[in-house]
Amino acid sequence: MAHGMILIDQERCKGCSLCIEVCPQHVITINTSKLNAKSYHPAGLDDPGGKCTGCAICAVICPDACITVLREPPLRRGVGLSSPTVERML
């Protein structure tokens, strides 16, 4: 199984939890200790076991287009994170 991870824009997320419902690995949770500027508890990857496969189902259902999905490249490696969108999510 490929290894992956997701980055959820903490300011754009409205905590609707749809990504949590569809995640086959059950590695997304609502971060109830955090409130963003719009007063939502955002979702985040909670994957200590490294189970995320980067399947992108969470991104497909996300109504706020705030999930970036990363995955081990199948062929070539070493593509870094360059987009400003991605950097803001780290």
């Binding site: 991870m5 990857l45 999905v69 990363l70 490249p73 490696r77 070493g78 593509v79 969108t85 991605v86």
Partner: peptide, 18 residues
């Protein structure tokens, strides 16, 4: 998630459309 860093070998496979 602020503490998380992306391992460099990971490639962006999905992001917000332009």
């Amino acid at each position: 998630m602020e503490t998380m860093t992306a391992p460099l070998e990971l490639q962006t496979v999905y992001q917000r459309p332009n």
